[in-house]
Write a protein that binds this DNA or RNA. Structure first.
Lengths: 198, 198
DNA sequence: CACTTTAGTTAGTATTCACTCACTTACTAA
DNA sequence: TTAGTAAGTGAGTGAATACTAACTAAAGTG
């Protein structure tokens, strides 16, 4: 069935993400994508001039998803500590929804082949770090968090928590709920940072 | 120049590790290895029956290095808190010496192609977790660390610290000294855990 | 020195990959 | 209705890839 270029492009991006999870980012060939989409391999090149451009489109898509998820998380939650929990929860949810994300971080495509892809991901990681740091500063101002720790360092500890957990999840059998385990560990870390109660 | 099989095998393993860092684990082809070693591509297969076997040899080599580094670190250090610092420092040093390690964790070779490789790495990560937990328990017994935190959770936070930092280091320009930044963050975390003084 | 072992070579093969090109068919606006 | 446009096809290409087979020569060993 013939589709408009915009629809087809979106479909191709979605298929790449799905395949990246199922068979690994570096096994996503134009042939595999075409088979999944249901067109010939050559048709893929009607929509993207090169394979690298496809990955850039994927990166744009993911960046949009992450940014939206963070904004959504911050919309409701309000004391800074709750906002931290919301941000971490949202990020863990995004990883669960797109399990290719951690693997993509270290794919050949990102690390060797595609500088634009690499830049996009580094940019989003820095953005998350910034959002977390902002809330840590607010929490310290409200006396909800210990003040004798640099907010930047706390933000690093929190992003590390997310990434370390994602590694364990990816490398293992994905046999725990990322969000639950992450929020549990976050509670532990927050208690160490002086947060009282649940 | 003709070498003994044992020497050649060791050389091939070293070249694979080096190439994995320089061009990415999934770009390490038998041809690239052969060129670096200085023999023909076919000669590589005199020493390893398949490419997967080469990676298993690499995994064995790395596992040995890590295990030795941890043992060495624990040999001298003595209060549990110092032993934690020594373990983390040793691990960061190993990553610095073999920058391919983080990337290898998410390579296609490990995640899709080579179950033995995957198992080897998961095993070493679990081993580090165990060593860290042991020291956390000892530290809590000595009243050097807060007791109202599960030792296992602390060990997870510490391994996450290492991995998160390694990700930032790998993804960025490797423009900071992994050990220094890691030990600085570890000091922050240890302070949160109740350690007093430097 | 003769003989055996074995590291190494040359020259392949089958497969997979990204990408191209000449052509065709479905949609759409005049 | 028809002409133009854009999505899709079929058949290919050259470059890499892991791996093989037949042969050569260097390094021990009696």
């Amino acid at each position: 069935m013939r589709k408009s270029a915009d629809l087809r492009k979106a479909q191709i991006v979605a298929v790449i993400l799905d395949l990246a999870d199922r068979i690994g980012p570096d096994r996503v060939t134009t042939g595999a994508v075409a088979a999944e989409v249901g067109v010939t391999q050559a048709a893929i090149f009607r929509h993207f001039p090169t394979k690298a451009e496809m990955w850039v489109a994927v990166a744009d898509h993911i960046a949009g998803l992450l940014t939206a998820a963070w904004a959504e998380a911050l919309k409701e939650a309000n004391p800074p500590v709750d906002r931290l929990k919301a941000l971490v929860g949202a990020q863990l949810d995004q990883i669960t929804a797109h399990p290719a994300l951690p693997m993509l971080l270290f794919s050949r495509e990102l690390n060797v082949e595609n500088a634009a892809l690499r830049a996009a991901f580094r940019d989003r990681l820095a953005a998350l770090h910034g959002l977390l740091m902002q809330e840590v500063i607010a929490g310290q101002r409200d006396n909800a968090l210990l003040k004798d720790v640099a907010a930047g360092d706390v933000a690093v500890l929190l992003t590390s928590l997310i990434q370390g957990l994602a590694i364990r999840w990816s490398l293992g059998a994905r046999d725990f709920v990322l969000r639950d385990e992450g929020l549990r560990l976050l509670a532990v870390q927050l208690r160490l940072l002086g947060v009282r109660g649940g």
